[in-house]
Design a protein around this nucleic acid. Sequence first.
DNA 1: ACAATTTCGAGAGCACTGCTCTTGACTTCG
DNA 2: CGAAGTCAAGAGCAGTGCTCTCGAAATTGT
Lengths: 231, 231
Amino acid sequence: MNASRTARERARAELTREIKEEARRQLAASGAQGLSLRAVSRELGMVSSALYRYFPSRDELLTALIVDAYDAVGERAEKADREAAGDGLRARWRAVCHALRDWAVEHPHEYALIYGSPVPGYAAPEDTIAPATRYPFVLIGIAQDAATAGHLAADAPAPAGRLAGQLQGISDAMAPDVPPAAMARLAAHWSQLTGMIGFELFGQFANTLDPADDFFAYSVDRMADDLGFPA
Amino acid sequence: MNASRTARERARAELTREIKEEARRQLAASGAQGLSLRAVSRELGMVSSALYRYFPSRDELLTALIVDAYDAVGERAEKADREAAGDGLRARWRAVCHALRDWAVEHPHEYALIYGSPVPGYAAPEDTIAPATRYPFVLIGIAQDAATAGHLAADAPAPAGRLAGQLQGISDAMAPDVPPAAMARLAAHWSQLTGMIGFELFGQFANTLDPADDFFAYSVDRMADDLGFPA
DNA sequence: ACAATTTCGAGAGCACTGCTCTTGACTTCG
DNA sequence: CGAAGTCAAGAGCAGTGCTCTCGAAATTGT
């Protein structure tokens, strides 16, 4: 009935946490492919079959790590946005964009887990899609604030047809004052962020834009220009 | 000395091709993770160890598939660009961008192989970086033609410092008339393309911008606007 | 307080993986 | 013809995810 349940339950929560911790360590060391249940259990001093009491399959363990990663990046972005709240739209935009990249550079394998190619044969279950929206929602929130402040640019051709409906659907759910054209811009920028970070992390910029710090910062500012955020 | 060498050499070339074909089939069916040398050899009616006469390791086979994929997407883009050559800059831009997406949708696993997260523990060897530049080079070529025709927009803040040098380096090597600001735009667009395609392929657009045809087409046109290509 | 139930770790085992090494047969070339 | 080079096959190693069973322990119901 109380917070500290039975000894068994506390032990179970503790071990579940330790398993995820060790799994994350292995993830960082050798990637999703190298995540081995046997190695995790070995490191924890237990036998491999015992792990299945905590995660019914390797995929379930992966799912747990994915959800944690989405939450981590979401929380980081929300914190960055909060801390830049008083400094204007452009500062918030910068902070949230750089929060994503910083987290990605710090945790490349976890980033790859959520924004890279999916582990083949693994289908992301429903539980992952709610945490996945947390980061983009911060971006959209800035645009929403910009819209109510009259600082959101709207000089692009209005999307038509099905696209207009899709964009309106997003607005209705998350940012009622952001018009479809701006929402399309936002989605494009969001794509571009992951594209740039992916290129940087996965080595596509080798010999050209690597190190990519300056390119990223420059591009983030151009996005802010594009959205009409005041300098 | 002549084109048809010894029977042995012809047999070897033939088998090498067949191995890659079967490997690509398995890749399409179950992804890079599911690519099993044993399964390939089984399908080809040979024993697994025999495969090592042709590819010294699984990674070498992957590398061969990666190079082939880069070449395939590069060739597709060059063809699209050629066929749209008479229709103006915007038509060429559209054609080349859609060529990438079409190829990606047709070969999602091969696309993931080259633009997704790298297979952990696998380091892309030098041989892959030349074919990798083939596609972006087509994009840059359009910008170069636009620049000489005086149709390349240049109304963004000029990049400074290290970034300016990096961009200039790309221009020097591939497109002497494209100024740094435009080259930065181009790199951003190139990032955005892979970002959008990645989102579409890897399911990040589920429930929002999926199907993504219209969003992609709309965004590609906004990029052309941004580059100043005449309608 | 004692019995019934649930939870847990351990171990054996299955079918699979990439990869190495050795063996014997075949082809090519001097 | 015979030496040199090439090839497929087979056995074997160390590793994987996962299942099943078994006995011990903790929890729960009476």
